[in-house]
């Protein structure tokens, strides 16, 4: 483990950085350490997949990285901005303009149409509407005919695509996605993953996605294997088979 003070240098070109990140839930014998003294570096333009068993703390980690939750210990940087210890308003600004987030449960606003859900980040952050970008996203995700509908009138996969569009509409530098392809068919998820990979390469966007699907993980430039709140290993330029092998190894260690 690296020394946290030494690592906390400004000016690093990293997209995301975490040092000694720790999050505990509960207290006493029921206490759970969901993220345990974790160090993490995500380079710009990288598509990173996080894989690991259920309950290993993946969702907690991405919440911490997005500034949605505050760590008990450790620090987080998005680009050069440190998230830990900054004001609530500054944190909100990062969440609104720098980071895009796709929830595991979508969290679409039930009272708004799909279009209004997608446009909401722009409205809330007083950003201009880029009509062309909206059309591009809608086309790519194939939700053109669903825009007027309310979330509860959409299927799980359609809701997921709306949630992805909402995360990408502000063209954030960092996208954090909690199982973005969990409810999608092979074709749709391949399309979205190709797009995410392309925007990483071409626009320098950084994407961190949590996934249980080895095929989805194989689109990433790096897979982090996560267990018990810590990074247990990583695979660079993974193939589907390498990911499966990695997960197998992880399962053996677990046992």
């Amino acid at each position: 483990m690296k020394d946290t003070t030494e690592a906390a240098q400004p000016g690093d070109a990293l997209a995301l950085r975490a040092r000694g990140l720790t999050k505990r839930y509960g207290s006493g014998p029921a206490a759970v350490t969901a993220v345990d003294h974790l160090d993490l570096d995500i380079a710009p333009g990288e598509l990173t997949a996080i894989m690991g068993p259920s309950g290993s703390g993946k969702t907690t980690l991405v919440h911490l990285l997005a500034g949605l939750d505050s760590p008990d210990e450790g620090r987080v940087w998005v680009g050069d901005d440190e998230l830990t210890g900054i004001s609530d308003a500054a944190l909100a600004r990062v969440r609104g303009r720098v980071v895009g987030f796709v929830f595991q449960g979508f969290n679409l606003l039930q009272t708004m149409s799909a279009r209004d859900n997608i446009m909401l980040p722009l409205r809330l952050n007083a950003l201009p509407t880029d009509k062309k970008w909206l059309d591009t996203l809608v086309d790519m995700l194939g939700i053109g005919s669903e825009l007027a509908r309310k979330p509860y009138e959409l299927s799980g996969g359609q809701q997921q695509r709306v949630a992805i569009a909402r995360a990408l509409i502000t063209e954030p530098r960092v996208v954090l996605a909690d199982e973005p392809t969990g409810n999608l068919d092979v074709h749709a998820s391949a399309q979205i993953l190709s797009h995410l990979r392309a925007s990483c390469r071409e626009l320098g966007q950084s994407v961190v996605m949590v996934t249980h699907d080895p095929t989805a993980a194989s689109y990433a430039s790096k897979v982090l294997l996560f267990a018990d709140g810590q990074v247990a290993g990583h695979i660079d330029n993974p193939s589907r088979e390498a990911v499966l092998a990695g997960l197998d190894a992880l399962a053996k260690v677990e046992r």
Binding site: L68, A92, F101, N107, L120
Partner: peptide, 16 residues
């Protein structure tokens, strides 16, 4: 409450 979480992720601060 889910909407609150979504709004926070989209850039609303706790004060807001």
């Amino acid at each position: 409450r889910q909407d609150d979480v979504a709004r926070a992720a989209l850039g609303l601060s706790r004060r807001q």
